[in-house]
Design a protein around this nucleic acid. Sequence first.
DNA 1: CCAGAAAACTACATCAAATGCAAAATTACA
DNA 2: TGTAATTTTGCATTTGATGTAGTTTTCTGG
Lengths: 207, 207
Amino acid sequence: MSEVLGLRERKKLRTRHALIAAALQLFLEKGYEETTVSEIATAADVSTRTFFSYFASKEDVVFHNSREGLDRGLEVIAGRRPGERAIDLLGRAVTASFATLAADDEFRHEMAPINHLVMTVPSLRARGLLLLFDSQQELAEALHRACPDELTLVEASAAVGAVIGGAKLAAFVSLNGGASPDEILEASRQATEFVLAGLRAASPASP
Amino acid sequence: MSEVLGLRERKKLRTRHALIAAALQLFLEKGYEETTVSEIATAADVSTRTFFSYFASKEDVVFHNSREGLDRGLEVIAGRRPGERAIDLLGRAVTASFATLAADDEFRHEMAPINHLVMTVPSLRARGLLLLFDSQQELAEALHRACPDELTLVEASAAVGAVIGGAKLAAFVSLNGGASPDEILEASRQATEFVLAGLRAASPASP
DNA sequence: CCAGAAAACTACATCAAATGCAAAATTACA
DNA sequence: TGTAATTTTGCATTTGATGTAGTTTTCTGG
């Protein structure tokens, strides 16, 4: 399972983590816009130019772990159980994604301040929404591929968009209301369930 | 209804339109990233600095009419019919928003190329998603205000997020599949109906 | 352990978006 | 017409981001 990494790879990982740690600390300490890439690089002991060979943009550091949840969801969808309905499969995928994120201790610990950062800085909010949007497309395609007879691509997109859209907005509003990380996760979970129940009821059932 | 505008106001409007026209033409002609703000300003016969007193960013020119649909939706929600259920009210608001945009001839005419531009340029996609997201919050708040006994703010957010999220992704996938403007509007409409039907079924009904 | 290949890092140079500021031009109005 | 208010403009500056060429570091095979 675990590859033996050469010195080169280990150093790259270390630099990457140093950049992430330095960036997050500075962002939380003195604000996102007030922190320059040059400062981040200096704090991580590399040149400014090197920063951009690790991250395509200053925004990307904040979303360094954005693929983890998505990949887990794709996995679940790829492993559709025989006869499982598309809506149920989607439900499992979304739940598994949440669980993956919630299980990451580091993420769980930093979730609140990072969320606050993302939600209060427009450019970060925009970047987050873009990543989420592109993720949804991947999920919709995967769902359609897994259940080609049950859902067209457009239908799968509507379903994915509805579920994630609902969860997203519920989470955000909940966050804005000063909820704790647990309460936010719970709000998303409830919204997901709510929308899923609706979709289940609306789609042409065949038990 | 129509104010008599002074010379100053008229000139400002003219400059604004000149900037929009010049920008869109250049964007479509030679690509968004390949067009500089300086070129836009020159084409509209103003200084580069002036561009930024009309639009906060290069991206904003593309979304110059983004508030029209939203405002119509907010209007509808504010005019809730006595006894009307929140879900139905939301449905009317979304439908009215679509109709408002579809009624604008200029928008209808330029919709296809502009949509293509937005969807293919990441920074524009991100900006569009941000505007849509913030709009959803306004809609959710309005919906909650209009039906405070029926929906909590979080529930209203989940509903708005689900409906618009579904419509958005369906429209995008449809667009990617090479659909015509009419087909795209139809796909959004269907997705909206689909999700609304689901929400209607899932929410604690009380006819 | 060494030499050459491959990869990563660095120090520039450059470009475009965006902002602040003060002077000049334009419009409004008494 | 003259003065106040507003807009426009040019200029400097900051910052994110990219290209490039050269140096340093790591890897690999002998």
